[in-house]
Every structure is written in C-alpha cells, then in structure tokens.
C-alpha cells in the first residue's frame, strides 16, 4: 500500500516538475502516467503492487470530479446570455466527436484487418 502510493506520487511529482521545467504542453500527471507505463513494463512486481490501489481509485474515478463539478455550479453566471448557444455547441460537438472518432476507429481497424482479439 505504502509502496504503491509512493510509486504513484513519485511519478506524479516527476511529471509535474519536468513538464514545468521543460514547458511541455501536457499536464504533469499525463507525463507521470507515461513514466508509470514504462516502469510497469519493466517490472511485473510493480504491476501487482499497484493493482489493488489502482483498481480502487479507477473504479470510483467519477467521485473525483465532484468537487470541480460543485465549483462549476457557482460559475454558471459566467455563461452569461450565451448559455443556450454554448449548450448547443457542447452537446452537438460531443455527439459528433464520439461518433466520428468511434466510426473512424472501426473503419480503419476493418481496413487494416485489425479486429480485436
């Protein structure tokens, strides 16, 4: 448990520090995730140490967005008189992006003979 937490926080810390030091256009935790993938590929033991805590956190990942969500409610006024237009843009673009992304994946997977196992 402590080892898993240490590994997670160390990756995040290195990620946060390096993205800032090198002014990379990606968030620290995403670089930390890449570092962790490399570490996990190198060590099967680390994979098993990490597994229980990762499954617990990822199983309830939705919970982690609640505080930010509550913050958003207080800022609905920031949408101003354009709330309707912004809602249409968000709903329309999200539906289109999921549709195009998934359809494109399937089309290219079929075209390259890349069915899932």
């Amino acid at each position: 448990m402590i080892h898993a937490l240490l590994a997670i926080l160390a990756c995040q810390l290195i990620g946060e520090a390096s993205t800032r030091a090198l002014a990379l256009p990606l968030p620290g935790p995403v670089l930390g995730m890449i570092l962790m993938v490399i570490a996990l590929q190198a060590s099967a033991r680390l994979r098993e140490i990490l597994r229980p805590i990762a499954q617990a956190i990822l199983g309830h990942m939705s919970l982690l967005f609640v505080p930010a969500g509550v913050g958003v409610v207080g800022h609905f006024a920031a949408l101003g008189g354009q709330a309707g237009a912004l809602a249409a843009a968000i709903i329309g673009s999200t539906v289109l992006a999921i549709t195009v992304g998934a359809a494109c994946f399937v089309a290219v997977a079929n075209w390259t003979g890349n069915a899932d196992d």
Partner: peptide, 26 residues
C-alpha cells in the same frame, strides 16, 4: 486524487499495451 488517478491509468494501459500497439493505426 485526480492526479494519482491519472497515474493509475498507466496500469490498464500497461495491461493492454500489446493491443494498443496492434491498433496503432486505428
């Protein structure tokens, strides 16, 4: 915990890495 959760995404990604490599084009 949003940060640590992002790091934890490495585990399913690592578990699925052969499938990810295979599906690089799609």
């Amino acid at each position: 915990l949003l940060g640590p959760a992002t790091i934890c995404l490495a585990l399913p990604l690592s578990d699925n890495l052969p499938r990810v490599r295979k599906a690089a084009l799609p």
